Amino acid sequence: MADFWLTLACSFLVRYDPWINGLFLRVEHLPGVKEFATAIKAPEVNVGGFALALLVLIFSRVTRFHDRISDIFKIRARFDRANILLPLAVMSGAQMSARQVANLKRDRHPLVRATFYKYARPAEANIRSSTSTTSKAHWRLGTYWVALEWLFILTGFAVLSAFARAAWFLIIFWTASMAARFYLYIFGMDCWNEGRIPRSNR
């Protein structure tokens, strides 16, 4: 839902620009828009922004947007290996050969399902994880996906502001998108550093 609320908040902000507000007004005057908003009990203020936020939410869920991005850039594959499988192996005291470490890439799916996703929601699991590794990894991965979706949403509003020649909005959204990008960069560097294993285990 974070993508919904961010889009809705941004839509309130950009409507202070007359040209962008005109676009939203056109959407709000399309046949059936107000009737649909009334049917789902949407707020009467900023109906166009609510509709846009709802479309973003539906698109994100239906297309599994962050999963598609992850597949393209191999984000989850690197995260699973560096932040889940390797740390768990080291903490268990296992002495892994270079070949075994390389095989983690091949066997990632069954290993992660058995060691991480089974305990990702301890309240729903029969056995609670004995360490905080799974809960920490679950939280960090969740915040990564939120930041990734926010990066695309904020970039979209920055592009819209550029078309409207709204300089202040362009600066605001571009800066916010760069903040999200910086978080992703720091997250990636942190994952890499934590995911390293001692040389004796390589």
Rank of each mutant, 00 (worst) to 15 (best):
V56L: 08
I127F: 04
D17I: 02
A166R: 02
V47N: 05
L52N: 06
V112P: 00
G48L: 06
M1C: 08
L151V: 07
R81E: 10
A125L: 04
I40A: 07
S92T: 08
A39P: 02
L111S: 06
I84M: 02
K118G: 02
L160R: 05
V159M: 12
F4T: 12
I69Q: 03
G22C: 10
F152K: 01
R68C: 07
R15F: 09
S70W: 00
A162D: 08
S70E: 04
R196C: 04
L54A: 14
R99A: 13
N103E: 15
M1D: 09
T38Q: 13
R165S: 12
H109D: 09
L184C: 05
G49Y: 07
V101A: 06
F36N: 04
M178C: 12
R165V: 04
H138R: 11
V33T: 11
K41V: 13
R26N: 11
T133E: 10
E124F: 04
E124Y: 03
R165Q: 14
A39H: 11
R78A: 11
F12C: 05
A176C: 12
F187Q: 04
Y144A: 06
I84G: 00
L111G: 01
R113M: 10
F12D: 10
S135M: 05
R128E: 06
Y185L: 09
G48M: 07
P87E: 01
A179T: 15
V62Y: 07
S200R: 09
R199P: 01
Y16R: 13
L104K: 03
M178E: 07
R199C: 06
L141Y: 14
F65V: 05
F4G: 09
G195W: 02
Y144M: 14
S92A: 15
A176I: 06
T7S: 14
A89V: 11
V45K: 10
L104T: 06
R15M: 13
G32Q: 14
S132C: 05
H66V: 09
L30I: 06
A82F: 03
M91H: 09
T115D: 01
I171H: 07
T63C: 12
R61H: 12
S97V: 04
V33A: 12
S92Q: 15
R108L: 05
F116S: 02
T7Q: 10
H138K: 10
E194I: 01
V159A: 15
L148R: 01
L88F: 03
L30Q: 13
G156I: 10
A82N: 05
L13E: 08
A137R: 01
E35V: 03
A125P: 00
E124P: 00
F24G: 07
R99D: 15
G156H: 11
R199E: 14
F116T: 00
A89W: 05
A120F: 00
I40C: 09
V56R: 04
T133R: 05
V101G: 01
R78E: 11
L184Y: 03
E35D: 12
I197Q: 03
A180Q: 14
T133G: 00
L184K: 02
V62G: 01
N126E: 10
L23Q: 12
W139Y: 11
Y117W: 15
